[in-house]
């Protein structure tokens, strides 16, 4: 694997990210927890893998690997980055006066969801997608956009900044559940299509000896089933966290009515 080969932007970008991370630690005079550092390292590894190994396969006209790459960029890397970034690293600038209202708007679950869905659906629209395959700069731009939109998407689940809070656990499940609509809207037509949708894939030989149409079905299935299974696993984690919290032995103060208790609880989620 020649990481500096065709795309020097990848190692440079990763190096810049690491530099920023370390610089922020130094500036704040704090260290991330061991766990956060680990998640960050995994995130960097995931980016490296996605943009080198997977990218080469995708460039070999393997649509399925290209879809896997998109899934990594939207569903795997952003949550890893959010897990790996301590809140104190982001809070100072995200909560600074000019940025805070924008951050608040963008990380609102409805807005974040709509932005992500719009980006994801538009990018798989045939004319856009085909241009992406032919224009390397546009391709890089879209991949960065995927990761940025993915950060927004996962913010209400994994926000490290309490002032831009997470959703309550059941709402998180519902939120990710809703994601099945745009994902299915993209994946299902690709999977069930009887013709090759994106012309670029018919213009050359495929890796692994796949035909263009088989490759497309495989890509659609990776996006449909892969995404569904992934979300199912995430649901499981969220449900467990919810059940742990609800099971905590909080004895009921005699006068407390349910609504008051709920406020207490939703604050606790926001602060955790």
């Amino acid at each position: 694997m020649d990481i500096f080969g065709e795309h020097p932007s990848i190692p440079i970008g990763i190096a810049i990210l690491i530099a920023i991370y370390l610089g922020a630690c130094r500036a704040a005079g704090r260290k991330p927890t061991r766990r956060q550092a680990m998640w960050f390292a995994i995130a960097m590894g995931a980016i490296l893998f996605t943009q080198t190994e997977l990218d080469e396969l995708a460039d070999a006209r393997l649509f399925s690997m290209h879809m896997l790459q998109h899934l990594m960029q939207t569903f795997v890397i952003p949550p890893l980055l959010l897990l790996g970034t301590p809140g104190w690293m982001l809070a100072p600038w995200m909560l600074s006066p000019p940025i805070k209202p924008i951050a608040r708007l963008l990380t609102n679950p409805v807005v974040a969801f709509l932005i992500f869905s719009a980006v994801f659906v538009t990018a798989h629209f045939p004319p856009v997608f085909d241009r992406m395959c032919r224009d390397e700069n546009f391709h890089i731009f879209l991949h960065l956009l995927f990761m940025a939109a993915g950060m927004l998407l996962w913010w209400p689940i994994l926000s490290p900044v309490p002032e831009l809070p997470r959703l309550s656990y059941p709402a998180q499940i519902l939120y990710l559940f809703l994601l099945m609509i745009p994902m299915t809207a993209v994946a299902a037509p690709i999977t069930l299509a009887t013709k090759v949708i994106y012309p670029w894939y018919t213009e050359g030989a495929h890796g692994w000896g796949l035909t263009a149409i088989d490759d497309q079905v495989l890509g659609g299935l990776i996006m449909w089933i892969g995404q569904g299974t992934y979300l199912m696993i995430v649901f499981t984690f969220i449900f467990y966290k919810w059940s742990q919290r609800e099971d905590r032995d909080v004895s009921v103060p005699p006068e407390a009515t349910a609504p008051e208790l709920r406020v207490l609880r939703s604050r606790r989620v926001a602060g955790s």
């Binding site: 209400p156 809070p165 959703l167 309550s168 709402a171 609504p259 709920r262 406020v263 939703s266 926001a270």
Partner: peptide
């Protein structure tokens, strides 16, 4: 989410 907490005061 702040408006979730707000909504929970019953009003």
């Amino acid at each position: 989410m702040s408006d979730i907490a707000d909504a929970h005061d019953g009003q």
